[in-house]
């Protein structure tokens, strides 16, 4: 396992793609958050909503490069055929997938932390009045929102890895992942039955996971912050299990 991890980490750091994608995550997260904060109607008492959620809105965009990274970690090897080299060198396929997941987790944790802290900093700079109070890391709910958002990004990466391992194609994998993330919340809006809508928002990986960003009015959420992130974790685990099972049983 240690050697597989060392190999996967070497793979990750010896191509330019992952670094650029993580920089893309930082840039997308910070810039969208800054723009959203500057557009919001904020007063000294707040922004007519959840200031922490507003400052962290950039992950809606920032998760896209993370998803690409997660997909490419294995999808790219299927594209070039290098997966055979990998599996010839490391015949224990579960170990390979686990090593990939750990290497991905580490990279996204670093990139995601920079992105999320950058977004908070941007929020404080753009919203000096409302930001100083609501966007302090010493504030319990805000700290939970920040930490939870980094975890959310990691889980999105793992979800993407699992999907790509199952579909064995980058383009299809990214389509499935972005569909899961973006389309379910849109579809849920068209369902007029509020019970069904809340259920769908509880089940979807993005709407449930981003509940971890809420710092005010927790009672009105379809799902609690940590429970919501738990749903996203469930998605990541489920796709990794399916991907891992298919990786084990199929010919490479």
């Amino acid at each position: 396992m240690k050697r597989a991890l060392h190999a996967e980490w070497t793979k990750m750091r010896t191509v330019a793609g992952p670094l650029w994608l993580l920089l893309g995550t930082v840039a997308a997260t910070v810039s969208l958050s800054a723009v959203a904060a500057s557009l919001a109607n904020c007063t000294a008492t707040g922004c007519g909503g959840d200031t922490a959620k507003l400052a962290l809105v950039g992950v809606y965009l920032g998760q896209a490069p993370v998803a690409i990274l997660g997909v490419l970690v294995i999808g790219g090897e299927y594209g070039s055929g290098m997966i055979r080299t990998t599996l010839a060198a490391m015949p224990r396929r579960t170990t390979v997938l686990t090593a990939k997941a750990v290497a991905l987790t580490g990279s996204v944790a670093v990139g995601g932390t920079v992105a999320v802290l950058g977004a908070v900093l941007a929020g404080r700079l753009v919203l000096p009045d409302a930001g100083d109070r609501a966007l302090s890391l010493s504030d319990g709910p805000t700290l939970r929102a920040v930490f939870g958002t980094v975890l959310y990004l990691i889980l999105i990466g793992l979800l993407s890895l699992g999907v790509a391992a199952a579909v064995r194609d980058s383009a299809t994998g990214i389509g499935v992942v972005l569909g899961l993330l973006y389309v379910v919340p849109i579809v849920s809006q068209t369902i007029s039955d509020p019970g069904w809508r809340r259920l769908l928002e509880k089940m979807a990986p993005m709407t449930s996971g981003l509940a971890v960003q809420a710092t005010t009015d927790l009672g009105s959420l379809p799902i609690g912050p940590w429970a919501g992130l738990g749903v996203t974790a469930g998605w990541a685990i489920a796709t990794l299990l399916v991907g891992g099972l298919l990786l084990r049983t199929r010919d490479a």
Binding site: Y60, L61, A64, P65, A67, I68, V71, L72, G75, G79, D169, S170, A171, G173, I174, G175, L178, Y182, V183, P185, I186
Partner: peptide, 17 residues
């Protein structure tokens, strides 16, 4: 492929969200 799919999908769908 992954870059193209993401770019286009995000450009069309994300604004709506």
């Amino acid at each position: 492929s992954a870059g193209a799919v993401t770019t286009v999908l995000v450009a069309i769908v994300l604004p709506y969200i």
